[in-house]
Nucleic acid binder design. Sequence first.
DNA 1: GTACGTGCAAAATGTTTGCATCATT
DNA 2: AATGATGCAAACATTTTGCACGTAC
Lengths: 151, 151
Amino acid sequence: MECVREIFARHHLRCTKQREAIYNALRASEGHPTAEALFRQVKPSMDSLSLATVYNTLEVLCRAGLVQKMPTTNGCCRYDADVREHLHVRMTGTDEIQDVPDELGQRLLQHQPAEVLQSIERALGVKIEGVNIQLIARPRTSDSKPQNGTH
Amino acid sequence: MECVREIFARHHLRCTKQREAIYNALRASEGHPTAEALFRQVKPSMDSLSLATVYNTLEVLCRAGLVQKMPTTNGCCRYDADVREHLHVRMTGTDEIQDVPDELGQRLLQHQPAEVLQSIERALGVKIEGVNIQLIARPRTSDSKPQNGTH
DNA sequence: GTACGTGCAAAATGTTTGCATCATT
DNA sequence: AATGATGCAAACATTTTGCACGTAC
């Protein structure tokens, strides 16, 4: 994984312990943590850390294009250190969001019909800059169709 | 447009003036208003209305499946009385969200490759219940490509 | 008449801000 | 050394809640 220091330098961001720790925690995280969750995760190893710094840092990283902020319906936002165009799955019920494995996600993104997108651009008089796809899914429980045990 | 009273009855919801006015305002609205915006819109013709009632009503309507709640990155949620699967366009910069004309939106939705979706279901062990597509777009200004003047 | 909805104010939640201090460049 | 980041607390914005009263069924 590339050195945070260099990434920050390239984006003209000061490299502080706090930013480094927060960004690393976010990059390492499996899911898409909230600011609170990141705070709780980093705080133990940096007792002086304040929640405001987490928010400030996340905002800076978002503005620099290093982090993606994702709204949820339940009030708080979630963050993602992967800023490439990729797919999310939101579980009904919880507001947990997980990534779709890249190979599969790319396949879906590549199937978007350019021709339809162009029609939409013309119809609305806009330039489409991204396609954000979120799948809504329910976990396959034992009482529904059997699953493949992939995991 | 179908009578609100009947729609509510079918969903076992009491029909109060407030609910009726809020739901009608939402159905009639072009964009995807926030609770605040709905409140400001309905308040003049119903002076006793309280913002809490707007929130309560929207929650009830969401739970009944009559309204869709949409998160935004800027704190407040937006609401949509159209609960069919349809496409949204979010403008970069503002948090305004608008609908894609249904014919075009359906074309895009129908182009989603079922085969890839099934692979994702298998890979994650989930059942996909919906595909939520949001286009990110920038308005075509005069200094970019000319537009069709549709609107 | 009863169960449920409303309005109000207060609380809860998530996020931002002002300012003195501190660290990175 | 100077510019900008941090930590704290207070402010802020949005949404939820408790309770007395009112209304739809």
